[in-house]
Design a protein around this nucleic acid. Sequence first.
DNA 1: TTCAAGATCGCCAACGTTTTCATCGAAAAT
DNA 2: ATTTTCGATGAAAACGTTGGCGATCTTGAA
Lengths: 328, 328
Amino acid sequence: MAVTIKDVARAAGVSASTVTRALTMPELVHPETRDRVRRAAATLGYHPNRAARGLITGRTGNIGLLVPDLGNPFFPSVVKGVQARAHEADYAVFLADTDEDEAAEAGLVRRLSKQVDGIVLCSPRMPDEELRTLVADTPVVLVNRRIARVPSVTAEFPDAMRQAVSHLTALGHRRIAYVAGPRSAWANRERVRALRLVAGEMSVDLVEIGNVLPMFEGGVAAADQVLAARVTAVIGFNDLIALGLLNRFTARGVAVPADISVLGFDDIALAAMVNPSLTTVALPKEQSGRAGVDLLLQLLAEPDRQTAARRELPTQLMVRGSTGPANA
Amino acid sequence: MAVTIKDVARAAGVSASTVTRALTMPELVHPETRDRVRRAAATLGYHPNRAARGLITGRTGNIGLLVPDLGNPFFPSVVKGVQARAHEADYAVFLADTDEDEAAEAGLVRRLSKQVDGIVLCSPRMPDEELRTLVADTPVVLVNRRIARVPSVTAEFPDAMRQAVSHLTALGHRRIAYVAGPRSAWANRERVRALRLVAGEMSVDLVEIGNVLPMFEGGVAAADQVLAARVTAVIGFNDLIALGLLNRFTARGVAVPADISVLGFDDIALAAMVNPSLTTVALPKEQSGRAGVDLLLQLLAEPDRQTAARRELPTQLMVRGSTGPANA
DNA sequence: TTCAAGATCGCCAACGTTTTCATCGAAAAT
DNA sequence: ATTTTCGATGAAAACGTTGGCGATCTTGAA
């Protein structure tokens, strides 16, 4: 059926080993035969069977990618970055979506791990200890989560939060609400921490509002609590939550930004599409995906490095229409 | 390193063949040994190496999925459906994104095809002839495109369009614009066709406006032409385009739906999040993904069926805030 | 002229499975 | 009691690669 290495060998009048060498270790074969083999391979349209190769080398040429929810536009962006970089390096990508089901994560990782050389875990929700046991078995790179001695890609959260709060204080806001995302999300914990720190420094009153799902509905659900808190500005854990807030505010006749300013995180495409457009802190989404793959490839190349690589990418506040001067 | 079939065999005191049989053809082994083997496999945490299995069976247990652009929320939804159904059937999913690059499609399919049992091609842009040659080599199922003698999953476009136009005419609209998506998109061609038909039947004036990319920016770009066309309603090829229109209309001070009604296609989550919310025809996104996998599995099970399976799924108009009575 | 070294290439084992074939009892039929 | 059948199992080949080892040939130095 498919063209195998033997077909090429026969066509070129050499042995199978020579074909392998001609294609993967060119310096070991005579230039003349090398060209002959290559021509034969090209005309027959030969591509090595990756499964067979993987069987012997222990390398599959695949990487796995796990995300919590493709329905949140943040993640497709990361996926795109992972894809792009992986394809450049001639790796294929297995994708799995956990549907925000924390319990399913470990199982999916284990399942994927047999078929891939390593896994990019994006925003995993599982607890640290569980994560640690997984990492012991499989090469893993974390995106949007940090934990000691595991390679990770994150955004500069303290700085991101500083940009956000500075912007709001510059507009005169002194009492700010934060609508928290999932407790299990590392990014949420980091944002809370950075926010408390910055709020303290800048002496702004901080009102923290419950944990909600990182979705539009979560924002809608929290909106009335925000209004009851009598703040002049609100920061959502992510853009979807911020959009939910925006939507409910409008429904209740609360004007944005005249009555209250709204600020999100992520800068999903949608943030620029709504009216008023959403001020938000842009996270490096595609870039994070690319960096994740970079780190993974590096990890695969030198598995027994002691210090885990860590990459922290810069963020950028995007000022749009949903924030304005405080109306105390 | 990893636990192999031999480890299980040794632990259970049987041969490797018996282990295989106990796990995949249980009726062939003695119940007692079967249980012994299964217990051994379970305690050792044995999972067959899929590459090795694939080598001999010719089946990889993987399927490929190709989409034009993960940045368009329509596609992540389809991906979710594919994922879900594939995992149920114990298949893993290779994902690739072509970035709306028509030329890259064939190459990616060919590349994927070595590592998967079959491919779900979602909204492929390539021309029919090229598609045909691909289909000859690899089991392929089309989602959101139809072509003779290839299994496909589509939505009921004529009916979808009928719902859309009926809604508008019921509101008194008699002159309607359509903002077309990519010429290479089958879905666009179908929508145009259905629209012309329905427009004729209902005797509404139809203004077709250029081909734009199926993105927010495409809608923004087309908006002024729409206004110049002096229509009372506009249908966008998809929700992103419709949102672009909405955005530009608002920017120009044109009220929606008071001055002009806007209607989209797809019902991406975002359609309900904006203000005014977007009236749109909901396409079965996740369902299409699931159905695509179903058809693929069916195709793999009986490769030499003559008649290609075809599934046409119903659509549903979602009336929201962007459509209202015509203001002639 | 001889020999060591290097270049080039073929043979074969190995990777972890599945599957065909053969073997061996035991049960059933004669 | 003898043959046949069948159920249960193991041995071995095969899938398509890769890589260690050794064989052959060339080259240049002694």
